[in-house]
Design a protein around this nucleic acid. Structure first.
Lengths: 191, 191
DNA sequence: ATGGTTAGTGATCGACCAATAACTTTCTTC
DNA sequence: GAAGAAAGTTATTGGTCGATCACTAACCAT
């Protein structure tokens, strides 16, 4: 397998492992094991653990942005909002990816504590890109943007904490039923 | 100093340290250093690291709940909502506490990976209490509750990621200016 | 087939970390 | 002032982790 292909599979494994245990809680050995290579080989593909995490962050955030963009392609603000709401459930069905993004948010402060400020800067830049993109799709409407991200974050947190389906926390979050004509949440699998 | 007093100061230090580096990223030595005691002494006050984190979680979440309850005491749903929105800025001025809560959300999956399911159960229970309390104050209104928590979570995430004041991400989140008559965000310090 | 490039491994190392055990100091009470 | 409890320390240990080094195996062009 080429180095580039290996790097891709490392990134995929990193999203899973980092998502479950966080930056500090994930050993490079755990990632290597999931990839199916030896632990030292990771350091041929990436300079250090930090770089693996950042590569995973880039991949995860950009994928999210792309999916929202595809879902809202060419739609007016309110329709774009509804379309992106409908696009969200199949996205968070990939729990590993969602957990990784949560870990990404909190990893910033830890890295800053180690004197690594570029880490946070890169993650903020990635996320701000998504913010801008979605904001544009929503016609720059502040309230739509805020509500969309707000509810999204609340869903993320509730999922990360592991509230089971049917828990009263979810009562207010069934965004399907509050939207005009949609297919419901039957789709699965993230491409 | 009595053991009980020491335990309190350990909890305070734990919120700060865990908040900055997460569960796995925080050493018991770092907590002990902040408290001003030797590292092994922590294990006289608490059975293990996990118990320190859970004690900090209890303290942090219950304090938040109490503050929201005080702010909305005896008010009708919409007024309670506005009052709690106004109460939030001084609360998140304590960045350590906010970061800790973010770390708390993501710590669940990591502990589950270690076979510790009670950890998540306890944190969910703590948080669900707060959810119920606030939901009641908002008259059980699903939309008010969802929006309140949603915007709160978005603020939390944006702060955790370290977006500086004035960044365009904050444009939509200035909840002060969207509320009727408030004191603004001049208050500081968390009692 | 041979020389070089690329993919990949085993061994190891210094640092760190949670937790235990054994010991010392300080306060309290009779 | 002696006894005992409560507060607190030093030393240590078994284990883990990120990273480096030296080495091997497969592929490829000449």
């Amino acid at each position: 397998m080429s180095a580039e292909e290996r790097r891709e599979s490392v990134i995929r494994a990193a999203v899973v492992e980092f998502g479950r245990a966080g930056y500090a809680g994930t050993s490079t050995a755990a990632i290597a094991k999931r990839v199916g290579v030896s632990q030292p080989y990771l350091f041929r593909l990436f300079p250090d653990k930090r770089a693996i995490f950042l590569a995973a962050a880039r991949r995860s955030v950009e994928r999210m942005r792309r999916r929202f963009e595809q879902a809202s392609e060419g739609l007016a603000p309110q329709e774009a909002h509804d379309a992106m709401c409908r696009a969200y459930p199949p996205m968070i069905a990939d729990r590993d990816d969602l957990l990784f993004q949560m870990q990404m948010y909190v990893a910033v402060s830890a890295r800053e504590g180690e004197g690594d400020e570029e880490f946070g800067a890169e993650i903020r830049a990635l996320w701000a890109e998504t913010w801008d993109s979605i904001r544009d799709r929503l016609g720059g409407d502040p309230q739509l943007t805020r509500d969309f991200f707000g509810i999204g974050m609340l869903i993320n947190v509730s999922l990360a904490m592991g509230f089971p389906e049917g828990h009263r926390v979810w009562e207010t979050l069934d965004i399907f039923e509050q939207l005009p004509a949609s297919g419901g949440g039957s789709e699965e699998s993230a491409g």
